[in-house]
């Protein structure tokens, strides 16, 4: 395997790991704040799935990039510019509709991603993908049910759901961006776009929502450039470990 291909799959894996960790943390922020007790439990259970997937991916990345770093070193020991998650997952929870919209847009993407990666030539990545695929189906199911209920609900819930889509839609462009990271054993994100759009369109139509018009397309998360709220999130997430390096409990 060439050096470039070796590096490519390491970066590719780290990007997915960071997506999982960051979205997991955002969802965990709903703990004790969700609209109902059942929803509180559902969101934190999805967060737990993502955390588990992230841990498996960090362990794989540590072998691929040759650093042998621990999961904690990846999560707590890196600065903002070293995180390679897409900007969509770091967006603030907002109202409940915004969280649902973020879940729908990202989980649907992730479902197609895991599905494609099941055939990865990297056996560990393929195993993680096959495992995660059984879990993300629930995440998509959860987001779809809420999108239908809010979109095709009251005037208020419909307006909020549509506003959430308008707010987050620009960040979906980055999911399908191609760049110079050629990942041997990965998947080219642009190949997932058509299937993702078909799924999203079907849900939005049934939910009486409009697909937002293409507008600006922010980008940079995959290269370590993030939106303002991400720094605050990271500061909170890393605070304890930065104050007490190596703390365990």
């Amino acid at each position: 395997m060439s050096v470039a291909a070796h590096d490519g799959i390491a970066v590719f894996t780290l990007r997915l790991a960071d997506d999982c960790l960051v979205l997991s943390h955002r969802l965990a922020q709903w703990s004790s704040r969700a609209p109902t007790l059942e929803e509180d439990v559902a969101l934190t259970n999805i967060a737990l799935d993502l955390l588990g997937q992230g841990r498996s991916l960090y362990a794989l990345a540590a072998g691929l990039d040759g650093s042998g770093r621990s999961e904690d070193e990846y999560a707590y020991g890196r600065d903002e510019r070293q995180f390679l998650n897409c900007q969509l997952v770091e967006q603030e929870n907002g109202d409940f509709a915004q969280t649902v919209a973020r879940q729908l847009l990202y989980s649907t993407f992730q479902q197609h991603l895991w599905s494609a990666l099941e055939a990865s030539r990297d056996e560990t990545l393929a195993a993680i993908a096959a495992k995660a695929l059984t879990e993300v189906r629930y995440h998509v199911d959860h987001a779809t049910r809420w999108t239908l209920r809010l979109g095709d609900g009251t005037v208020e819930s419909h307006e909020r759901m549509q506003a959430a889509l308008e707010r987050l839609w620009p960040y979906t462009a980055e999911l399908f961006e191609d760049d110079d990271v050629v990942a041997n054993g990965g998947v080219e994100p642009r190949l997932l776009r058509a299937a993702w759009e078909a799924d999203i369109d079907a849900v939005l139509t049934e939910a009486t929502l409009q697909r937002p018009e293409p507008a600006w397309a922010p980008s940079g998360g995959r290269r370590g450039i993030h939106t303002e709220s991400f720094g605050y999130m990271l500061a909170e997430m890393q605070h304890l470990h930065r104050c007490h390096p190596g703390a365990t409990w």
């Binding site: 059942e38 439990v41 879990e135």
Partner: peptide, 12 residues
């Protein structure tokens, strides 16, 4: 009653 219960593997 609830598709997502106390743990991900259970429904109420």
């Amino acid at each position: 009653v609830a598709h997502f219960a106390s743990t991900p593997c259970q429904a109420l």
